[in-house]
Amino acid sequence: MTLLEFARGPALQWAAVIFVIGMLWRTLGLLLMLRSRPLSKDRKKGLAGAGVKTMFSRFLLPKVFAKRVGFQYLLGWIWHVGFVLTVFFFQVHVMFFKGLVGFGWPALPNSVVLPVAAVSLGILVILLVRRMTNPMLRYISNFNDYSSVIVTILPFATGFATFTHIGVLPYETLLALHFLSVALLLVWFPFSKLFHVITVLPSRYILGVKFWRRGVEA
């Protein structure tokens, strides 16, 4: 079995299996945990609505924090948009998903996706360098943080190498590495902080409800 066959076949298959198991495991495990409920009277009505509102209002940064956190927020924003566009709207990726789920959707032209992917990759590298050089970030960072960013960078880097076919390695090796890096991302995803895909919005909901109970828009 060549590397590419392994990557396209068993590697992706097992990675997807681990991904699905891991995601459900952690999500359900969290969901099933006991929850304590407050007994005191709420100051405001419409808790659920307020929770949902916080889920979305936290996408925007309150103005008072703009000076200190604005740059970071902006990077985060661009990265996520870039990620979604690259992963789900690059021609070749749409084919992948079509192969997987049986239907495709319109893709973006390469002339759009490639610069977007380049920017996303660039931002990830900036985030990583920032994490390594900013004393505060370095202090709070652990293996989970570094590994998660690196594991996310890899598919972008190998993807670029594959597409542009630069580098000393032959195409099929690059493509195999690209698949393998995606497999690694899938495996790493449920067990690392990348799991934030699932937790961020509920977490916002929780605080939104908690604070609206007290009459505060969080």
Binding site: L30, M33, Q72, I140, T199, P202, S203, I206
Partner: peptide
């Protein structure tokens, strides 16, 4: 409880809180 667990699992170590 469940709420605390979800929140602890949601931290990105982004450092904004600092």
């Amino acid at each position: 409880d469940n709420n605390v667990a979800v929140q602890l699992d949601a931290c990105l170590h982004c450092g904004a809180c600092a």
